[in-house]
Amino acid sequence: MTEQTATVEIPHHHDETGTRLGFWLFLYTELFLFAAFFLIYAVYRSNYLVEFRTAAESLNTGIGTQNTIILLASSLTMVLSLNALKAGKARMAKTFLQFTITLGLAFLVIKGFEWGAKFDHHLFLQTTKGIAAGEGSLLLNPSAEMLPVGQVLFFGLYFIMTGTHALHIVIGLIWMIIVYVWISKGSINPDNYGTLERCGLYWHLVDLIWIFLFPLYYLVA
């Protein structure tokens, strides 16, 4: 369509506040993504109150609390990492970031053990019993071995919601590792800390979602 005659470098457009504003909007989309899950949870909880409470009792509150505190601590180290970088202490920022990554990994490991235990008790797979893959399951009479439907819903939601949350943790961890490398290289530095700041915001959002997941699954039994 055209013949090119000139190439122009676009002058780098710096608007940290604007970028942060955009990132916050992105965080709202994440929030709404989880909101759909929470809405489903709320509806089915109101339909199957007793089953939800019974099912919730099989979750280990101790592990849940432990994980909550781990995640809160990781948020704290994230804040400190950013503060350190802003104060010009890049090495300290990296140390705090290491803490955050370690805590995030710890969360995942604990979560993994918890999931594993659930698998061992067939709380997940039991829902599949008698439902051969590929067949319509609609006409199936819930067999005697199956949990009551309300509990099936509870565990289905539990695995999908915590699974999605864990996926966000993994994304956050990958991002933090990238940020860590960039700090080492110096492309993220005390004068240009926007990326670390946004990574932090993302991490806090993951924390924020857990703050609501925790009581809804572990506490209100």
């Binding site: 489903i40 893959a133 399951s137 609609l138 009551p148 099936v152």
Partner: peptide
């Protein structure tokens, strides 16, 4: 996966999907 959010056989409500 064998999870049923909207499957009546597993206690779900297909109308909830329509809401969402």
């Amino acid at each position: 996966l064998p999870v049923g959010f909207f499957d009546p056989a597993k206690g779900g409500d297909p109308i909830l999907f329509q809401h969402l």
